[in-house]
Simulated assay, not measured.
Amino acid sequence: MINIIWFLILVSSIIFGLITGSGEVISKSIVDSTASTVKLMINLVGMMCLWCGVMRIAQESGLTEKLGKILRPVLEKLFTKAGKDKKAMGAIIMNLTANMMGLSNAATPFGIKAMEEMQRLNTKKDTASNDMALFLVLNAACIQFVPTSVISIRAACNSQNPGAIIIPAILTTGTSALVGIIICKILQKHF
Protein backbone atom coordinates (compact mmCIF):
# COMPACT_ATOMS: atom_id res chain seq x y z
CA MET A 1 0.00 0.00 0.00
CA ILE A 2 2.78 2.44 0.87
CA ASN A 3 4.34 1.86 -2.56
CA ILE A 4 1.09 2.96 -4.20
CA ILE A 5 0.94 6.09 -2.02
CA TRP A 6 4.54 7.05 -2.88
CA PHE A 7 3.89 6.37 -6.56
CA LEU A 8 0.80 8.60 -6.53
CA ILE A 9 2.67 11.40 -4.75
CA LEU A 10 5.52 11.22 -7.26
CA VAL A 11 3.31 11.08 -10.36
CA SER A 12 1.00 13.85 -9.16
CA SER A 13 4.01 16.06 -8.38
CA ILE A 14 5.49 15.53 -11.83
CA ILE A 15 2.14 16.15 -13.55
CA PHE A 16 1.57 19.30 -11.46
CA GLY A 17 5.08 20.52 -12.31
CA LEU A 18 4.55 19.96 -16.03
CA ILE A 19 1.13 21.69 -15.98
CA THR A 20 2.59 24.74 -14.21
CA GLY A 21 5.50 24.92 -16.68
CA SER A 22 8.19 23.75 -14.26
CA GLY A 23 9.39 20.78 -16.33
CA GLU A 24 12.93 22.13 -16.58
CA VAL A 25 13.13 22.62 -12.80
CA ILE A 26 11.91 19.05 -12.26
CA SER A 27 14.54 17.64 -14.64
CA LYS A 28 17.33 19.64 -12.98
CA SER A 29 16.17 18.57 -9.50
CA ILE A 30 16.17 14.89 -10.49
CA VAL A 31 19.71 15.09 -11.90
CA ASP A 32 21.04 17.08 -8.93
CA SER A 33 19.45 14.79 -6.33
CA THR A 34 20.76 11.61 -7.94
CA ALA A 35 24.29 13.06 -8.12
CA SER A 36 24.20 14.13 -4.48
CA THR A 37 22.82 10.71 -3.47
CA VAL A 38 25.73 8.91 -5.14
CA LYS A 39 28.22 11.25 -3.45
CA LEU A 40 26.57 10.69 -0.06
CA MET A 41 26.66 6.91 -0.50
CA ILE A 42 30.37 6.94 -1.35
CA ASN A 43 31.12 9.04 1.74
CA LEU A 44 28.88 6.84 3.85
CA VAL A 45 30.59 3.61 2.79
CA GLY A 46 33.94 4.90 4.05
CA MET A 47 32.48 6.03 7.37
CA MET A 48 30.63 2.75 7.85
CA CYS A 49 33.86 0.81 7.22
CA LEU A 50 35.59 2.87 9.89
CA TRP A 51 32.81 2.34 12.45
CA CYS A 52 32.55 -1.36 11.66
CA GLY A 53 36.27 -1.63 12.38
CA VAL A 54 35.95 0.26 15.67
CA MET A 55 32.99 -1.87 16.71
CA ARG A 56 34.84 -5.04 15.73
CA ILE A 57 37.67 -3.98 18.06
CA ALA A 58 35.08 -3.46 20.84
CA GLN A 59 33.74 -6.94 20.16
CA GLU A 60 37.16 -8.60 20.01
CA SER A 61 38.35 -6.79 23.15
CA GLY A 62 35.46 -8.29 25.12
CA LEU A 63 33.61 -5.03 25.68
CA THR A 64 30.34 -6.49 24.35
CA GLU A 65 30.74 -9.56 26.61
CA LYS A 66 31.27 -7.33 29.66
CA LEU A 67 28.15 -5.41 28.77
CA GLY A 68 26.32 -8.73 28.44
CA LYS A 69 27.36 -9.77 31.95
CA ILE A 70 25.92 -6.53 33.31
CA LEU A 71 22.66 -7.04 31.41
CA ARG A 72 22.13 -10.72 32.21
CA PRO A 73 20.55 -10.33 35.69
CA VAL A 74 18.14 -7.64 34.46
CA LEU A 75 17.15 -9.56 31.32
CA GLU A 76 16.60 -12.80 33.26
CA LYS A 77 13.97 -10.97 35.33
CA LEU A 78 12.32 -9.38 32.29
CA PHE A 79 12.03 -12.55 30.20
CA THR A 80 9.90 -15.05 32.11
CA LYS A 81 10.52 -18.26 30.10
CA ALA A 82 13.56 -17.30 28.01
CA GLY A 83 15.32 -16.02 31.13
CA LYS A 84 15.52 -19.61 32.40
CA ASP A 85 16.87 -21.03 29.11
CA LYS A 86 20.63 -20.63 28.59
CA LYS A 87 20.53 -20.78 24.77
CA ALA A 88 17.71 -18.27 24.40
CA MET A 89 19.18 -15.88 26.95
CA GLY A 90 22.61 -16.07 25.31
CA ALA A 91 21.19 -15.11 21.90
CA ILE A 92 19.09 -12.31 23.42
CA ILE A 93 22.09 -10.86 25.25
CA MET A 94 24.32 -11.05 22.17
CA ASN A 95 21.68 -9.33 20.04
CA LEU A 96 21.01 -6.52 22.48
CA THR A 97 24.67 -5.85 23.28
CA ALA A 98 25.58 -5.82 19.58
CA ASN A 99 22.76 -3.34 18.94
CA MET A 100 23.86 -1.18 21.88
CA MET A 101 27.37 -0.98 20.47
CA GLY A 102 26.13 -0.07 16.99
CA LEU A 103 26.86 -3.48 15.46
CA SER A 104 23.47 -3.87 13.79
CA ASN A 105 24.90 -6.15 11.08
CA ALA A 106 26.27 -8.49 13.73
CA ALA A 107 23.07 -8.22 15.79
CA THR A 108 20.75 -9.56 13.09
CA PRO A 109 21.87 -13.22 13.19
CA PHE A 110 21.66 -13.18 17.00
CA GLY A 111 18.15 -11.72 16.78
CA ILE A 112 17.05 -14.48 14.43
CA LYS A 113 18.63 -17.09 16.71
CA ALA A 114 16.94 -15.56 19.77
CA MET A 115 13.53 -15.73 18.08
CA GLU A 116 14.16 -19.36 17.04
CA GLU A 117 15.11 -20.28 20.61
CA MET A 118 12.06 -18.52 22.04
CA GLN A 119 9.85 -20.24 19.46
CA ARG A 120 11.29 -23.57 20.67
CA LEU A 121 10.11 -22.65 24.18
CA ASN A 122 6.74 -21.35 22.96
CA THR A 123 3.76 -23.58 23.74
CA LYS A 124 1.47 -21.86 21.18
CA LYS A 125 3.47 -22.21 17.97
CA ASP A 126 1.10 -20.05 15.91
CA THR A 127 1.19 -17.10 18.36
CA ALA A 128 4.12 -15.00 19.54
CA SER A 129 4.88 -15.46 23.23
CA ASN A 130 5.16 -12.59 25.69
CA ASP A 131 8.95 -13.01 25.66
CA MET A 132 8.99 -12.80 21.86
CA ALA A 133 6.93 -9.59 21.90
CA LEU A 134 9.16 -8.06 24.56
CA PHE A 135 12.29 -9.02 22.63
CA LEU A 136 10.91 -7.46 19.48
CA VAL A 137 10.21 -4.22 21.34
CA LEU A 138 13.68 -4.20 22.93
CA ASN A 139 15.33 -5.00 19.62
CA ALA A 140 13.49 -2.17 17.86
CA ALA A 141 13.98 0.38 20.65
CA CYS A 142 17.42 -0.78 21.75
CA ILE A 143 19.53 1.69 23.68
CA GLN A 144 22.26 3.02 21.39
CA PHE A 145 25.50 3.90 23.15
CA VAL A 146 27.23 4.49 19.82
CA PRO A 147 24.75 5.36 17.02
CA THR A 148 27.24 4.68 14.24
CA SER A 149 24.83 5.04 11.32
CA VAL A 150 23.63 8.49 12.36
CA ILE A 151 27.17 9.66 13.15
CA SER A 152 28.32 8.43 9.74
CA ILE A 153 25.50 10.20 7.91
CA ARG A 154 26.15 13.43 9.81
CA ALA A 155 29.88 13.21 9.03
CA ALA A 156 29.19 12.51 5.35
CA CYS A 157 26.96 15.62 5.22
CA ASN A 158 29.81 17.76 6.65
CA SER A 159 28.34 18.21 10.12
CA GLN A 160 30.43 20.41 12.42
CA ASN A 161 30.08 17.86 15.25
CA PRO A 162 28.80 14.46 14.06
CA GLY A 163 29.17 12.96 17.54
CA ALA A 164 26.82 15.50 19.12
CA ILE A 165 24.04 12.98 18.56
CA ILE A 166 25.41 10.48 21.11
CA ILE A 167 23.83 11.88 24.31
CA PRO A 168 20.43 12.62 22.69
CA ALA A 169 20.47 9.13 21.15
CA ILE A 170 21.17 7.50 24.52
CA LEU A 171 18.36 9.50 26.15
CA THR A 172 15.76 8.88 23.45
CA THR A 173 16.54 5.20 22.90
CA GLY A 174 16.73 4.63 26.66
CA THR A 175 13.35 6.29 27.14
CA SER A 176 11.75 4.36 24.28
CA ALA A 177 13.15 1.06 25.59
CA LEU A 178 11.85 1.78 29.10
CA VAL A 179 8.40 2.79 27.82
CA GLY A 180 8.33 -0.32 25.61
CA ILE A 181 9.16 -2.59 28.55
CA ILE A 182 6.50 -0.97 30.74
CA ILE A 183 3.80 -1.26 28.06
CA CYS A 184 4.74 -4.89 27.32
CA LYS A 185 4.54 -5.82 30.99
CA ILE A 186 1.17 -4.07 31.39
CA LEU A 187 -0.24 -5.78 28.30
CA GLN A 188 1.12 -9.16 29.44
CA LYS A 189 -1.09 -8.95 32.52
CA HIS A 190 -4.23 -8.29 30.46
CA PHE A 191 -3.70 -10.55 27.42
Rank of each mutant, 00 (worst) to 15 (best):
residue 81 K to L: 09
residue 131 D to T: 15
residue 60 E to K: 15
residue 71 L to D: 02
residue 93 I to F: 02
residue 73 P to K: 08
residue 59 Q to C: 10
residue 90 G to A: 14
residue 80 T to Q: 13
residue 70 I to T: 10
residue 164 A to V: 01
residue 38 V to P: 02
residue 104 S to P: 04
residue 160 Q to N: 08
residue 102 G to F: 00
residue 68 G to T: 03
residue 162 P to C: 04
residue 160 Q to C: 04
residue 56 R to E: 11
residue 108 T to Y: 05
residue 182 I to G: 08
residue 163 G to N: 04
residue 143 I to N: 00
residue 151 I to N: 04
residue 34 T to I: 14
residue 93 I to E: 05
residue 83 G to E: 14
residue 66 K to T: 06
residue 99 N to D: 15
residue 86 K to G: 05
residue 171 L to I: 12
residue 182 I to C: 05
residue 34 T to V: 02
residue 51 W to N: 11
residue 170 I to F: 02
residue 161 N to I: 06
residue 55 M to E: 13
residue 162 P to Y: 01
residue 105 N to F: 10
residue 153 I to L: 07
residue 45 V to T: 09
residue 79 F to S: 11
residue 147 P to Q: 01
residue 94 M to N: 07
residue 131 D to G: 15
residue 170 I to A: 02
residue 160 Q to R: 02
residue 89 M to P: 00
residue 1 M to W: 10
residue 1 M to T: 03
residue 161 N to K: 10
residue 97 T to R: 04
residue 141 A to I: 02
residue 85 D to V: 01
residue 58 A to W: 05
residue 97 T to Y: 01
residue 114 A to I: 01
residue 13 S to V: 05
residue 116 E to G: 13
residue 187 L to H: 09
residue 60 E to P: 01
residue 27 S to T: 12
residue 128 A to P: 14
residue 184 C to D: 12
residue 169 A to T: 09
residue 36 S to P: 04
residue 65 E to P: 02
residue 133 A to T: 06
residue 154 R to P: 00
residue 100 M to R: 03
residue 27 S to A: 07
residue 30 I to Y: 11
residue 150 V to P: 00
residue 115 M to F: 15
residue 130 N to K: 11
residue 126 D to Y: 04
residue 186 I to E: 08
residue 34 T to P: 11
residue 146 V to R: 01
residue 13 S to L: 14
residue 21 G to H: 06
residue 118 M to Q: 03
residue 93 I to N: 04
residue 80 T to M: 10
residue 36 S to W: 12
residue 76 E to Q: 06
residue 76 E to M: 10
residue 177 A to M: 15
residue 173 T to G: 00
